[in-house]
């Protein structure tokens, strides 16, 4: 049940995408506030996950430790546009795309999928970054 609520909030979070959110105060994601303990997302936890090394990599390996910077695929060398919506408004706007990349990249980094809670935390983190 709790995980259902988190999932629902994650969907809300994604649905509420767009440049408007870039202006929200750091660390606060509107859809997360009503949820109480189980449902609240934390930018701090998101940042921690982002820089945690799994098998060989962390998210930061390709996206850099500051997601406002452009990154580089560590194997192929291809440039990756910044992840923070404040500097790259196209980010986090398409829920299907976000879900696809969480699924793939969490498996690459942690050898498992990330929970809805973890995904929400990372999104909260990315949204918390200003220009």
């Amino acid at each position: 049940m709790a995980s259902r609520i988190v999932l629902f909030q994650l969907i809300l979070l994604l649905a509420a995408a767009g440049p408007a959110l870039a202006a929200d105060p750091p660390g606060i994601v509107p859809a997360t506030q009503a949820g109480g303990d189980s449902g609240s997302f934390s930018a701090g936890r998101g940042e921690q996950l982002f820089t945690t090394r799994g098998r060989d990599w962390s998210c930061a390996t390709c996206h850099t430790a500051d997601p406002r910077n452009p990154g580089r695929h560590t194997v192929t060398g291809k440039a990756i546009a910044p992840m923070a919506p404040a500097v790259n408004p196209e980010r986090l706007g398409d829920p299907a795309k976000v879900a696809k990349w969480f699924r793939r990249n969490c498996k690459d980094v942690f050898a498992r999928e990330c929970t809805p809670q973890e995904q929400g935390d990372v999104i909260a983190y990315l949204r918390s970054l200003g220009k």
Partner: peptide, 15 residues
């Protein structure tokens, strides 16, 4: 062959 194996695509998940 490549398209059958996207889940483990040169060590990356490209499913």
């Amino acid at each position: 062959r490549l398209m059958q194996g996207l889940g483990d695509h040169f060590g990356s998940d490209a499913s």
